[in-house]
Amino acid sequence: MAESTHIHDKNVPLEYSKAEDRMTILGFWVFLGAEVVLFSTLFATYLVLHSRPADGPTSAELFKPEIVLIMTFLLLTSSFTGSMAIHYLRAQNMKKMIVWLLLTMLLGLGFLGCEIYEFHEYIALEGVSIKTSAFLSGFFVLVGTHGLHVTLGIGWLTLILIQLKKRGFTPRTARKVFVIGLYWHFLDIVWLFIFTLVYLSGMVL
């Protein structure tokens, strides 16, 4: 167990002040590297199976740009609001940080709502599902895995908000906020590639 080399320099953010928390942040970056590989495998599967729609619709026939754009801007904005929250974390301004965190959560919920609506359109109205074709299996699992990650992220953020209320700013709570910030930005980056390689490519190429 590392001896806690506590850094008392006020120029060092709270989340980096204890050795334990520094290691956790590094560990989380390594985990994000693993997640990049995880999503890349899902992307590879999607791209390989994309041209195999069997009897079901193709991507060009299925995807609609409007809802995709709304989701993209919701998530992109939530990434910005998340980064604002980290700014106020470092400014040690609890009130403002919580406001920006809640905004982030709201935008995330909006994103999920749209995605549930989109999937509902496909499943209930178009009558397709993962059972329809290889292409649709790939689509639902790739985009669904991302959506599941967002859902877990919102649950996680809720837990952190509760802990912040109870304990205020400590090196550990600061680290927790920073880490979930990393997670949240990462999900936006993944969505960037989904937007590009699934939806846009699927509609025009």
Partner: peptide, 13 residues
């Protein structure tokens, strides 16, 4: 769940 990633049917590989 009946998906078709690696099946012979419905476009799986």
């Amino acid at each position: 769940f009946g998906s078709h990633f690696f099946t012979l049917a419905n476009g799986g590989m």
